[in-house]
Amino acid sequence: MTRDDDRRATGLVLTEEQQRRRRARNVAIGVALFVLVVLFYLLTVFKMGGNVANRPL
């Protein structure tokens, strides 16, 4: 039995509003992670510049 099943069995079912807010939080976390990936990409490019390619093959 999963945690969600447990909650349903004990009457803990999310309301529409709670589901909507959880969805919004999930989207926000997704956006934040995507922004973080972009920031690290930009940092790599602008901090290392051409040196990224400057290594023995």
Binding site: R3, R7, A9, T10, L14, R22, R25
Partner: peptide
């Protein structure tokens, strides 16, 4: 035991993105 354990879990969060 399981019902007690589930009851002890925090309730569903009411926080919206704006609250954070």
């Amino acid at each position: 035991d399981r019902i007690e354990a589930v009851s002890a879990l925090p309730g569903p969060s009411l926080a919206g993105v704006g609250d954070y």
